[in-house]
């Protein structure tokens, strides 16, 4: 943009910023896509005023590349707006409308002020049009980024939520917990565990908390509830995977784990479970060096025999 064009555009914007702002905000609030349930006139007016000021600052520099440094502040206003709207659940067009709705009032203004200079009017109109288009697209882009962040966060939460119940052996279930345990999640964990106990008729359930980063009184409470519920279903629970720090925390918090069996590792817990079922793991005379034969699994399985009573 040439310096003189930029200057005259700046002049026009500065000339009656208040009136321009008012018509712009009126347009936004009056448009059918205005979400009165998500935002207020006050909020829109606030954003609009800040953006208009920054826009004027940026235009004065004469730089049309909106990624250049004079546009930093204007971009920041748009960033904030798009991010906020993405979180609040606005649609992309509703968000982009913020910038595009400035066109109409601005062009009206140009037409009125430059009625005697059609040449300048045409230049300014096309310049401003191009500029606002880029800004609108930029808004949409930021909006998309905001949505992507929301999706990523939800994915993360989902991952934490999924807790498989695995069968270690006939009658032995394991529940490897990963991520923080809150009330809602404990409920899901408890329900799926109990359902699996019914389905599989398991008599021992091992709750492995290796993947639980911290244990506070609430988490301990949830664990104890799960253990109590499993006991009511006729299954014994073993808590395994207690890290040294967590053991310290549990004792410092004064949490009473009562009669619950606790083990440091899942292997220890599994050994106890097998013993309870009257099973034992034996070492066969010569362990094969490599898994090079089919049916090797069968050999391993046959080494797990019931001990003679």
């Amino acid at each position: 943009m040439a310096k003189d064009v930029a200057a005259s555009l700046n002049d026009i914007l500065q000339n009656d910023q208040e009136a321009l702002l008012r018509t712009w905000v009126d347009r936004q609030v009056g448009s059918p896509g205005f979400r009165s349930d998500r935002t207020s006139r006050q909020e829109v007016a606030d954003h609009s005023a800040r953006f208009l000021t920054q826009l004027r600052e940026a235009i004065r520099s004469g730089d049309t590349n909106i990624l250049a440094s004079p546009w930093t502040d204007a971009r920041r206003v748009l960033d904030e707006l798009s991010f906020a709207r993405a979180q609040q659940g606005f649609s992309p067009s509703e968000t982009a409308q913020f910038v595009f709705s400035l066109k109409q009032p601005l062009f009206e203004r140009l037409r009125r002020d430059l009625v005697n200079d059609p040449g300048l009017l045409a230049t300014l109109t096309s310049e401003a049009d191009a500029l606002l288009d880029t800004l609108g697209l930029y808004t949409t882009e930021v909006f998309q980024r905001g949505r992507e962040q929301v999706i990523m966060r939800q994915q993360q939460e989902l991952m934490e939520l999924s807790t498989p119940v695995v069968t270690l052996w006939d009658g032995v279930l394991a529940l490897p917990l990963i991520g923080t345990l809150d009330s809602a999640r404990t409920q899901v964990v408890m329900e799926s565990l109990l359902q699996r106990i019914v389905d599989s008729g398991a008599s021992i359930a091992i709750i492995d908390i290796t993947g639980v980063p911290t244990v506070d009184t609430l988490t301990a409470q949830h664990l104890l509830k799960t253990v109590a519920a499993a006991r009511l279903m006729g299954a014994d629970c073993i808590i395994s995977g207690i890290r040294p720090q967590i053991a310290q925390t549990i004792v410092h918090l004064g949490v009473e784990l009562g009669s619950v069996i606790t083990k440091a590792t899942l292997a220890d817990a599994f050994a106890i479970a097998l013993r309870r079922l009257g099973l034992a793991v034996q070492k066969t005379a010569a362990a094969p060096a490599r898994r090079d034969r089919e049916g090797e699994d069968r050999d391993v399985r046959s080494s797990l025999d019931r001990p003679e009573n």
């Binding site: 109990l194 509830k225 519920a229 006991r231 009511l232």
Partner: peptide, 19 residues
């Protein structure tokens, strides 16, 4: 006591009755 349903077990625990 045998044959307790999961929902019943959860309810009893939430009620603080671990039997």
């Amino acid at each position: 006591v045998v044959g307790m349903r999961p929902a019943v077990a959860i309810t009893l625990v939430e009620l603080g009755l671990a039997l």
